[in-house]
Design a protein around this nucleic acid. Sequence first.
DNA 1: CGACCTTTGTCAACCGGTTGCCAAAAATTG
DNA 2: CAATTTTTGGCAACCGGTTGACAAAGGTCG
Lengths: 356, 356
Amino acid sequence: MSESRTQDLSDSSAEARKPVRSGKSSATIYDIAKLAGVNPSTVSRALSKPGRVSAKTQKLIEDAAAQLEYRVNPFARALPTGRTNTLALIVADITNPTFFGIIRGAESTATARDYTLMLAESAESADTELTAARRMLTTVDGLILASPRMDDARIRELAREKPVVVINRQVDGVPSVVPDVNKGIGEAVRNLAANGHRKVAYVAGPPQSWMTTRRWEGVKAACEWSHLECVQLPSSKPTVDGGRQVARDVVASGATAVMTYNDLLAIGLMQELQAAGVQVPDRISIVGFDDIFGADFTTPALTTIRSPMTACGTEAAALLLEVLHGAEEVSPALQVETELVLRGSSGRLLASGHPA
Amino acid sequence: MSESRTQDLSDSSAEARKPVRSGKSSATIYDIAKLAGVNPSTVSRALSKPGRVSAKTQKLIEDAAAQLEYRVNPFARALPTGRTNTLALIVADITNPTFFGIIRGAESTATARDYTLMLAESAESADTELTAARRMLTTVDGLILASPRMDDARIRELAREKPVVVINRQVDGVPSVVPDVNKGIGEAVRNLAANGHRKVAYVAGPPQSWMTTRRWEGVKAACEWSHLECVQLPSSKPTVDGGRQVARDVVASGATAVMTYNDLLAIGLMQELQAAGVQVPDRISIVGFDDIFGADFTTPALTTIRSPMTACGTEAAALLLEVLHGAEEVSPALQVETELVLRGSSGRLLASGHPA
DNA sequence: CGACCTTTGTCAACCGGTTGCCAAAAATTG
DNA sequence: CAATTTTTGGCAACCGGTTGACAAAGGTCG
């Protein structure tokens, strides 16, 4: 039942191709060494360092490894080297569709590069986030933080221990991937202006969100450019429910077009307006942010400024891998483009909106 | 901010609270041993095996550990023991909202029990799924497969190496968590019957899906019980688009109520019917499955049979942990209840539906 | 007070790779 | 063909915990 030196047995019978070992524990480089008749360290070199071993020895070892169905023990490798071929991704809320794309993008890039992704969520809590980050940091090669809730100082602290990339945020000295909101916002505001709107309301996200500020500033700038009036309205929480609650304020503001911090707010707002008999888009146009899953389920379908979340995930993982593979200088803040996705919730103003 | 013996030190100077070590690498049990004046193996016992060490030594060691901000090196621990405190979860499609709940449930249970969750997706491919499973299996203590696409034999093969739990599937000899569809289906069909419907169409999912068969059988049985006619219609794919495509067949079938394999199909179907001028629910009632995120964004909101996906994830993780912690006998197939969520897409039949 | 049983702590081997150092072997060169 | 350089492979230490075997110390009892 034991390994070694089956090589020169002609593999006549069917079980000759079965791995020689029978126990459930997997083969080690020592088994390979015995089978191939070389030293374990030679096996180690053949399998990790390329070109450090003669071609025929290499072949001998690879064949033996294949025969034994050898798979490297990640822990044994990680112990001396510290390398784990694992990345961590922490998101604020697993059920928030904004993050789905990020998760998928990061996962696919990681897998493609033979890394494994570990996922954790912070449940929107800065403390939980930090705890999770600390815990995972001991196990992974690098960390991706998507829309982190903790403060800059802590992020930098983590970044001193292992490479960190942040998404939807900028932190000095930490590489990041952020959507460049201006293009999408510009398109949206120009479209609103062209459709006769003169006043735009921006429904803000959580005050501590870095992104809501960027978006508001983008909206403000684009409105100035197009000579539109604009006003910011706070929201209780960035969810469908929060969107419902802000509907009264929106109507009271006299704006005929609304842009919201995210699509969830937009959807809730639309539901509430429709329930109150306010036609969308005839009386009020609505533009969301992100183009989340389900944004086109509504009637009318939601016009929104799409952030390429999958690309964010992909780029963040790629950036992290670059750093891990020794790139000294990486672009500190990678921008990805946003674009307007025009659907039914925005359009020409019919009933003249602000006669007062 | 820091733990350990800062209590009786007046925390005068700022660096008094800093850990004693200066380098970036973290403390080991040897550092603790030196600081506490005991042998490293004593430290190991104090920190893992309870009651194996005298109370005062225990305290000494714990204080030293806290002072050094010691955190165990998972690799060093995993190497001799094989335990990693890590679970793997493989889902068919990260962007399919059906899995969000599962992911969140599993993640929260794992974290609560001090395990970490590793996530991978199979992109709906049985091969990718198997590859991912094999790769992760070397690294984790156990594996959760959500709606696996590979065949029973391979699942059993994996289960021989490490504990496995499947969700939305039953495999002989492998513990599983499956929604019991009958309750929800029964509620739905009774409701349809009470609203005057006489013929129900079931839009099926992918033929290889274990679940679509269960649901069809449930629908068939419930319809028989309520003396309703029922018919099964195939779909091209279980997505919004697939739902649109099946709309013609639905109308042609003469059914006045439709139940679909999942909510995506239901949403697509509703969009297409409305586009064709067929009133929902006045002419055709629609009932989906799962109650995914966004099911209530549509107009009318979608009536659906909710599967408690979060509970599935929670239960699966808990089951797996039970097995890992030595429970010999675990219930082979855990059932979770489903329930009807009544919204606007189903209701009383107005125009008499099948006069032909 | 000595025999015997616990409790507590120490020693050393081990998990499975990696890697610096060195010697043997092979290839190159004069 | 010997001398020198370059390859190649072997030895052994190391990563940081865990654990069985055992000794020392402490406690109980006749």
